[in-house]
Every structure is written in structure tokens, then in C-alpha cells.
Design a protein around this nucleic acid. Sequence first.
DNA 1: AATGAATGAGAGTTCATTCAT
DNA 2: GATGAATGAACTCTCATTCAT
Lengths: 213, 213, 213, 213
Amino acid sequence: MSELTPLRPVKQRRMSRDEKARDTYKRLLESAARVVGEDGYADASVSKITRLAGVAQGTFYNYFETRQDVLDRLLPYMGRQMLDHIGRSLAHDLTGAEREEARFRAFFDYLNEHPAFYRILYEAEIFAPDAHDEHFRILVDGYKGALGRAVERGEIKGYSDQELEAVIYMLLSARSYLAMRYVHDGKGGTGPLPGHVIDAYVKFVTRGLFAAG
Amino acid sequence: MSELTPLRPVKQRRMSRDEKARDTYKRLLESAARVVGEDGYADASVSKITRLAGVAQGTFYNYFETRQDVLDRLLPYMGRQMLDHIGRSLAHDLTGAEREEARFRAFFDYLNEHPAFYRILYEAEIFAPDAHDEHFRILVDGYKGALGRAVERGEIKGYSDQELEAVIYMLLSARSYLAMRYVHDGKGGTGPLPGHVIDAYVKFVTRGLFAAG
Amino acid sequence: MSELTPLRPVKQRRMSRDEKARDTYKRLLESAARVVGEDGYADASVSKITRLAGVAQGTFYNYFETRQDVLDRLLPYMGRQMLDHIGRSLAHDLTGAEREEARFRAFFDYLNEHPAFYRILYEAEIFAPDAHDEHFRILVDGYKGALGRAVERGEIKGYSDQELEAVIYMLLSARSYLAMRYVHDGKGGTGPLPGHVIDAYVKFVTRGLFAAG
Amino acid sequence: MSELTPLRPVKQRRMSRDEKARDTYKRLLESAARVVGEDGYADASVSKITRLAGVAQGTFYNYFETRQDVLDRLLPYMGRQMLDHIGRSLAHDLTGAEREEARFRAFFDYLNEHPAFYRILYEAEIFAPDAHDEHFRILVDGYKGALGRAVERGEIKGYSDQELEAVIYMLLSARSYLAMRYVHDGKGGTGPLPGHVIDAYVKFVTRGLFAAG
DNA sequence: AATGAATGAGAGTTCATTCAT
DNA sequence: GATGAATGAACTCTCATTCAT
């Protein structure tokens, strides 16, 4: 990889002991995110992470139990960011397929602003499976609420709760694969999602899920 | 992991030199497949593979250039098997959504019979990206032909070719994630896909894609 | 080979971190020199070197990039030692053939005190060619200065500058081959150079180079 | 290295058993010479040699005990060639310094016609020390006879027999180092020896050895 | 809390040699 | 005599983790 440039050495001067520790923790976590985004989990060595964070290798172990520990915290950290972003992006009055479309677009917005998220999310199934499971649990739970409300509003018909869960997995999977195919360039970078892909998604989901039975 | 048990030591007695070599090659390839299925690409060491195949480590390098080399051959090898299986499973007279349902079921049949295929396929994006790209190319091309014929038969309406490609990615992605959620047990094993998941898939795809515009 | 005996375990107690690191570096370098002296570059494995230095194999790579790296540093390290030794041995008032004789004797003195130097120097052409080239450049440059001054003093006549360079190579080559034949015992050890060899060298060089034209 | 091109598959058709064996032996020996000339002893693997000779790896061991065995035979094989060449090149009526000059030129002639000889000779001290010793014994013995005759003719004065041996080593060493500096290009190739180097050698040796005491 | 040298297990790979065919 | 697949010891190098400073 092209060597990443270290983060700013320390933030401001005069930080309390506590602030400094918190700052170091965050620096390590964000360095890890950048390294994983650039090189993938497999090549995210402790030495790369600490070099990027500007601390000694031993310091790492004052903040994380093991290398795996920091890898496990990456997806929760960025996943929450992503959910916050999507939440903020959804206008309150949107309903039905339009709401789903907005969610879909917001996801790709976030991806474009945080290219590292692609690898962190998609490699997590392999390298941080617990974090991946938990991330999915949160996502699916959120979706269940959202689709449940759509069912109540009569926008979705003909799907049992069990079936809706399966549909949620299909929606989430679509994001991943469309990102893989249309957005990810194979080396850490991303581009905007082509309009016809959005059209296809919206059409497919509208007919498949929201269309009047 | 629980140590895998070695393959039968040699096959029959009396094999010609050529047969023996072919046998060793196949034993190594299938050992690699089992190890990757069990432990993932990252932990598929040459030593594990040769131990399982019952040959010396050096023998490995008579058949593969590098460790990566064998990893790259896994997905083509099993991917072809899978496509053959699906091809054989499709009754000729099936059309429309029923044909897609048969394809879907056949995929999960194959997965249940070859549990290692799950990891080989889903980790390939990371560990054997070239093989992964090629595998997808074949899959997508096949699907394009199939959906193209459905369009000609008037079973699918309202999707441009570009949009259909995006839809194909959604169909393929659905398989993956539904496998991940409902079939894969997290440690190399698989179970049958619950009926309601099949129902949900069929319903969603029928409405989304095949329903009369 | 007869296993070499490890260096003293640590030096003194109470060394600062920096001192300890410097000590480890030196121990590794000198262990490498002894191993090469004993077994040659080809058989100087990292494992032998670290065993002799009394450190773990991994430690080696905290100080040298690769095995080749340490091999490349051996000749510069000992070559400088040798030149210092020769420089210190030359009385200021010596001139002409006597000065060359002193240089010649000083070289063999050094060789006897550092038997490893023989292999380090003579195998370097093959195993550390860059270091060898550089070493020769330094040697030849030094000689050019020395012979140039002899020419100015009128002690050498009848040789062009180009020819003198060729003569320098002959002088350096004589050292090597005489060491090979009369000093080196074939297994890392050395003995004193017989007097008649010194006589022959002095006679040959005096007549060949310094004799009045 | 640039892959060497294999020797002609077999010579003529219809060779007796004995001839075929002798042919294979020679093919292996000459392949070894080419490989060593190109890549050096250290990288002359049995596999490279047999590939170049166009035989299977196992065949090698029908002709040579070990890899070292063939390496040990290289210098005797080419050394004899070289001596024959020099012998043929020396006009019978040459004497004194002129005879030595002719010998010197003939050596470099041979070197230019057989570039592989450079590495075979100069690496032999390290990789085939016994062969190297033997080669030198032959060379020195020959030289002793030649210089002894020069002494008898009164062309050389003032050197004892012991001293003459040392001088012989100096003459042989000069060839090597002058070849290293002026003829060898660092990657298997050679060029002609510059005239001023020949001049310097002749001048040095004439004055040093042959000049009237 | 921060450091960074030291550790050592384990990885991938090479290759001279053997031997059944 | 020729073959070439099989062997296994030995190699260089990596890196998560520890711990004395």
C-alpha cells in the first residue's frame, strides 16, 4: 500500500490525563480504521496501526487487549456513524417505497464519504464475525420496525413477519453487492452509484414489496 | 478447529504414474477445499493441506506454484461443479418465476451437499479476487442469457438491459445473504433453507421481476 | 564446522536501553563476522548468527533488514578496521619500497589478528558484490594517492596514471593470493607469512616499481 | 537469469549404448558449465542443469554422485582446455619476458572465448576448493618448470626457488584481479583487456623478474 | 501511561536426493 | 539407463505479544 500519513501528533496542548488517554484511544481506533480501509483486516498489523497513530507498539496494549480486539471495535464504531447518518438523512414525512429509496441513497452517500467503511463492513464477516453479527442484528431490528410500520400503514401486504425478515436480508444484501459491483473500485476507492442502478433497485423493491397486492 | 481426518491414503493399488499424479493433484485440491471450508482461506496453510492429503509439504509445490495458486483454483473448480449441478437440476420446460425458483433451490441444494462451498465463495472476494471476478462474470453472463430469454417471452417487462444487470446482482446477493443467515451455522456446517425463506424469495422476485407490468 | 561458542551473555549489568541496543547490534554483527569467517557467506544462516549472539532469531530483524543486509555490512565494518590498522602501522617517515613493505606487513598482521577477514574479503566479490566494489574503490583510491606521492618524490618512474592503476590491482591481488597460499589454512585459521614470501614480494615490487628507471 | 536454451536434444541417431552414455555425461557437464558461468555455483541447481541438458533430474544421479560432484569436475575440465589453449599459443622460440607476455595474452584470449570460465575459476576457491587446489597445483608446477628454464637461461636472477614460487602466485593473482577489474562486466560477459593494462603487466614483470640484476 | 527491544512460534518456499516404475 | 514424483530438512522472514525501563 502507499504509506498512510500519520495523524496529527497530539491534539491541542494542555489536555488532562483523561483527555489524553481518550485521545490516544481514538487515534488508535481511527488509525486502525484507515489501515483496514486501505489494506484490509488481514494486513492490518499492530505495527502499522501504531505507526499511523504516532505511538509506540507497546502503547497499543494499554488500550486494546489484542489485535483482534481493535478489529472487533471497528464495525460497531463506524456502523453507528452510518446509522446516524442514515437516520439524519431521512425526512420524517417520507413513507413507503420513497422512504426505502431515501434509505438506500443515504447508505451510498455514507459509503462515498467513508470509503474505508466498505472493507470494514464487508470483510467483517470473515475477520470480525461477532461484530458482524451484532451489526446485522441492529440493522435488521431497525428494518423490522420500519417495515412493521409500513405494514401497519398498509403499504406492504402479503408478507408474514418471518418472510419480512428474509426480505430484509435481501434488501441489505442488495446494498452490498451493488456496492461491490458499481461503487467499489477494487483498491479502496469508491464512486457514485449510477442512476440506472438506483432505478433498478427502486423499481424492484417497489414492485416486490410495496406494490398493492 | 477439530483436526480434519486425512483422505484415504492412496486410492487403489496399481495406478499408472499418470493416474497417480492426477490423483495427488486432486487430493491436494480437495484437501485445500476442505481446509478452506473449515478454517477459511486465511488459515488454510500448506501444512494443513498436505497433512490432510497425506503427502509431504514439498509435494505440494510439484502441483501448485504457490499457496495462493491453489487458493485461486478452488472457486473455479467448485464453481463449475455448482453450475453443472444447477444446470442439471433445471427441468427444460420451466419458465418465468418457476424457473428462477428452481435455480434458487438448486443453489441451496448444492450448498447443502458441499458445505465448504460457502466459505470458498464468500471469502474469495478477499482472498482470491481474480477468481471471484471471473466466477461472477460467468454467473452474470449466464443470468443475462436466462433473463434475456424471459424478456423475449414477455415474462419480464419494464427493465432495461442495464437495469437487468443490477437486478441480477440483487438476485445473486440474495442467495449469499440468505445462505449466511439461514443456512450457514458459522462453523463450516449448513442446514436446509426454511420454507418461509423460499416463499419470501419467490414472492419478492415474482412480484418484483416477473409480474405483469 | 565445530560449533562456535556464544559470546558473553550480556555485557555488564546496568546498561541504558540505548547502550543495550547498540550492544546487541554489535554482537550480531560480530557474530555474523565469526560465522562467515568460519563457514563462509553461503552457510552463514541467520539461525547460526543469532545463536552465537545469544539472541532470538526474531531479534535479528530488529537490526537488519534481511540476511543479505548483515552480509553487506561485514566488509565495510572490517575493511575500515583494517585500513585503520594499516594507517596506524605506517611510520610517517617511511618512503618508497620500504613504505610499501610496511603496508604489506601490516595487512598480514591484521589478517593474523582477524582470521575471519580472509573469507569476508575474498568471498565478498560473490556474496556482497556492492560492498566488495566499494571496498576496492576505497583501497584503490588510497593507493593512487600513495603512489602518486611516490611518483612526485621521483621514486616511481615510467608508469602512466592508467598503468599505475593496473599496478595497484596487481599489488592488491598479490596480497590475496599470497594469503590464500601461505597464510590461510583452508578452515578459517591463519598463520604468519613466511619470511621468504615477504622477501619475494619486496624484491619483486622494488625492482618492478621503485627501481630507478 | 535469462533462461538458457537447451542443448541439441541428442547428437546423431544411432549411437551405441556407450556413446549415448558418454554423450549424456558430456551434455550434463557442459550444461553445468554454462549454468555456473551464467548464474554461479551457488545458483547452479540440479534442476537447471538437467533442464538445460534435456534429461530428467534423476538421470543426473546416474552420472554424478552428488551435485557437488559435478561442480568439482568443472574446473579440471575447463582448466585442461585452458592450458591446452595456452600451450598451443606459445611459439617455441619465445623466451624471457616475451614468453611471459604471450602466456598472459593467451590467458585472456581464452577467457574471452569462454566467458563461463571466469566464474568457474574464480568461484571455485569457495565452491570447489579441492578442484581449485588441484588446478593451482598444476598451474604452479607448470610455471615452476617454465621459470626454472628461464633461470637456467640466465633470464631471471636473484630469486631462490622458494621465492620464485611466491612470485608465481603473484603472476597468477595478477591475471585474476586484472580480469576482475578490466575484463569481467559483472554479469557473465567479458571484453578485451585494454592495451595499457598489458603494458603495465609486461613492464612490471619485466623489471621485477627478468631485468638483469 | 509510554516505550520499543526481545521473543519464538509458525509461515511459505526451495532443492538435493531417492526410488518405484 | 531413464524417469520424475515424492520427500523432508532447512531456510528466511513476519508479527502479535510481553515486559523491563
